[in-house]
Amino acid sequence: MSAIYIEGLRKSYDMVPVLRGLSMSVDAGQVYGLLGPNGAGKSTLLHLMMGFLRPDAGRIEVLGLAPMAAHRQVGYLPERLRYHTHCSGREYLRYIGKFGDEHGAGLRDRITALLTLVGLEEAADRRMKTYSKGMLQRIGIAQALLSDPDLLLIDEPSSGLDPAGQVEMQELLLELRSRGHTIFLCSHQLDEITNVCDRVGILVRGELAAETSVANLPGTEGIVITLVEMPAEDLDYGLRALDPTITREGRRITIPVNTPPLQARLLQLLLDEGFTVASLQPTLGTLRDLYLHVVSGNIPPTEAAPQVTMPLLDTLLAEEENQ
């Protein structure tokens, strides 16, 4: 079942399009990270999912419901650290609970448990105006979790936090992930997305320019070909003639920047020379590589090619190490 289903979503501000026919879905139990440059439409998308904004066209379903109807089952952490700060953290959470018609001992116990989870039990009775940015962000997480939501929509959780605060926030997100929450996370922190999310999408100019699972990031950089036979040095001339950037180290040939025609010519050369290819492995680019490629307009396929793995490769490499 999709926790979030979006089809053909369009939204403009004063005739300026922000989202241009966006379609995507997030499965229940998934942690989805949305990246994108400033102004790409990430916060607008979250506000549409929360029902704060109305779409110009298209369809949004949150937990199978219209956005406004799903509020009871959704926890939301806004981007800006703006909270009502004249009350204490505990008092704030109590009121937020009451806005959702939670009350009594159940609410009190839940608040205590959440304050412990976010590490604010000692500061719970202090006025929130004395809180640091990190503490405010943690109280934000606590309020988002107050109704034990099925889905968490989190906008820039590490925004404005110092490095220690960012690490703490990441640990908190990992804790939420381990508890099985479905999370939709907008962030600029590539490490955060890589460490926390199952799947990542990159929003550029209101369109989903790329989407992939984090465990299988596309090989944006190149490929490594491993041969069964150890080639003679003569092969290096042929490789350099194909492309000067190609390098060989023992049985391994690396194309740092791969293109399908170059890959095809190299394979043809190797076959012509009578070599047997043991494996062809894309070099996994980092999320940063993917992001920069996509944002600069050099868009890779939306899904990475499956990584080739062969048992023979491990044997050959082990032999090489023994020699």
Binding site: H71, R72, D101
Partner: peptide
Amino acid sequence: SRAQGYVVLARPLGRKG
């Protein structure tokens, strides 16, 4: 009209409330 209102509007209280 301040951004603090988003957290409140995200609750079942709703816009009319």
